[in-house]
Design a protein around this nucleic acid. Structure first.
Lengths: 118, 118
DNA sequence: CTGGATCCTATAAGATACTG
DNA sequence: CAGTATCTTATAGGATCCAG
């Protein structure tokens, strides 16, 4: 009946909101790696380790659509595309840092906890 | 041929390791809410908002198996169970805090970015 | 109140092959 | 090099009903 509010998403809390952007298996890793500076597609793929072309492209497109990542196509042959973080993407990457540190510090316990099988 | 190393998980980085523990839609929210103090099952379910019994129990069991959450059953009738964080779980919850803050600060932009679809 | 069990669907993710 | 397209599988997640 009205033109407004197609349906603005509502979040239960800040963490919920963040997870809409970085949810999934690959996005945090992509974001965090790009914190180290702009990266070409191939470089990014090697860095993420294990990701398929399909997933990498898909996640990159979503991150770009959400304004976290900037894609720069140099229009050259052979192709040359560079991905970098927007200011907002960078701040999100920074927010991921403590989680990364936690993982490094507790890598041993985590590996042990994971071994018995889930 | 050897007894050791059934297959110790290997992580590509700290963030990767962390995600093995807090990956998924609900675990971060559970962890973070429990940072506010121990909570009974029903209380937790109301707090997480939208989670089903099945998912909540499942995620809680995994978090418990991984040593992040402690389940205390009071053995009463009617049942009374309290969930709390282990020291490690608490440190993980703390590492989630910046992400939560980021979501709060950027809730507006996130909602806007999410609206167009995907 | 705190779950367990079952069934079902949606989405994430992986494999493979192909293209400008 | 940087993707696209298609197919298939795995897992996450949801609905419903049941139980001590």
């Amino acid at each position: 009946m009205s033109l407004q509010s197609t349906d603005t998403p509502v979040f239960s809390c800040g963490l919920d909101a963040s997870l809409r952007i970085v949810g999934g298996k690959w996005k945090p890793l992509i974001l965090y790696f790009l914190c180290g500076g702009p990266s070409r597609y191939g470089e990014l793929k090697r860095a993420v380790a294990g990701v398929s072309d399909k997933m990498l492209i898909q996640q990159l497109k979503e991150l770009e659509a959400h304004g976290m990542v900037i894609r720069k196509d140099y229009g050259e042959i052979p192709p040359r595309v560079e991905y970098s973080l927007s200011p907002m993407g960078r701040s999100l990457g920074d927010a991921l840092k403590p989680l990364c540190v936690w993982g490094e510090q507790n890598a041993g316990e985590i590996a042990a906890a994971l071994r018995p099988g889930s």
